[in-house]
């Protein structure tokens, strides 16, 4: 058993654990290669957390991550529910909806720029049909702190992912319990919330964990489509790392560690909340 697990354990602990330890140490002032070694030193965290912009950035990061996770979740579940029912052209849709999964994020971002930009397809189209007089009157969607572009890209990419996961779970659950509930007199809301939802919850939880963890740490979309200062935390970290003043690297590392801490706390509470629910309904 142990022998078989050894290669994986070595890779995991050296690559992941080593990097983690180094990162944490660096954020606490251990960077002899820059001629800095004040370990343990909380000044970088202090400087970061003491500044108002950090909390604004955190708010933005959470806002983009939560809104897009929630939207992808709702749309993904609806899509999965539709896919287990019969409708004409179903095989075609089953291929179509998986398309965004195979297209890289950067391509999605480029698509968002082409479609939603100020002289993008949508604005031209609206001008063409006469909804607005000139493409330039099109409201600014990208590069604002509402983050419509960022959210659109995340949702576009992640709805199929949620749908795929939940669809697989739904296939395993089958239609029979829903039919039994209908015969017992339940209407479709009661069937969904009391019978289907609790059974697909494991799929929902695992897929939201994955997409939320991604969204909170993602960099490209907020970097390209975001509204500038205050940036999301990953972009803030990137700016520190790229700064000419290389001692700011430590500040950047403190930002990265903060992101990891926050994501960890949120995901952990989400999971333990879910575990409590599972225990309450008797699953182990």
């Amino acid at each position: 058993m142990w022998i078989q697990l050894m290669p994986v354990l070595v890779v995991l602990s050296v690559l992941f654990g080593g990097a983690l330890v180094l990162g944490v140490m660096q954020s606490l002032g251990f960077a002899p290669w820059f001629g800095v070694n004040t370990f343990p030193d909380f000044q970088y965290f202090g400087a970061l957390w003491g500044d108002w912009f950090f909390w604004q950035s955190l708010g933005l990061t959470l806002y983009y991550a939560l809104v897009s996770t929630f939207l992808s979740l709702v749309m993904g579940v609806l899509l999965a529910l539709a896919l287990v029912r019969y409708f004409p052209g179903k095989t075609f849709y089953k291929y179509l909806y998986k398309l965004p999964l195979m297209i890289p994020y950067t391509v999605g971002i480029a698509l968002a720029v082409i479609m939603m930009g100020n002289s993008g397809m949508i604005s031209r189209l609206m001008a063409f049909v006469g909804l607005i007089d000139d493409p330039s009157q099109f409201p600014q969607i990208l590069k604002t702190h509402y983050g419509w572009g960022i959210i659109a890209v995340y949702v576009w990419k992640q709805t199929p992912f949620v749908a795929l996961t939940v669809y697989a779970v739904l296939l395993g659950v089958g239609r029979e319990t829903e039919e039994a509930a209908a015969i017992l007199g339940a209407n479709k809301w009661q069937i969904f919330f009391q019978v289907t939802f609790p059974q697909i919850l494991p799929g929902i939880v695992s897929s939201t964990l994955i997409i939320f963890a991604f969204n909170i740490g993602a960099f490209e979309a907020p970097f390209i489509l975001g509204g500038g200062f205050p940036d999301t935390l990953p972009v803030v970290a990137w700016r520190y790392f790229n700064d000419a003043d290389y001692t700011l690297q430590l500040q950047g590392m403190a930002t990265v560690v903060s992101i990891a801490l926050i994501a960890g706390v949120i995901l952990y509470s989400y999971l333990s909340f879910y575990r409590r629910y599972e225990r309450r309904i008797g699953r182990h």
Binding site: T177, A180, V195, P198, Q199, G282, R283
Partner: peptide
């Protein structure tokens, strides 16, 4: 209706 595979609500 009592289903062939019971279809009890597992949760």
């Amino acid at each position: 209706m009592v289903f062939q595979r019971y279809a009890l609500f597992p949760h």
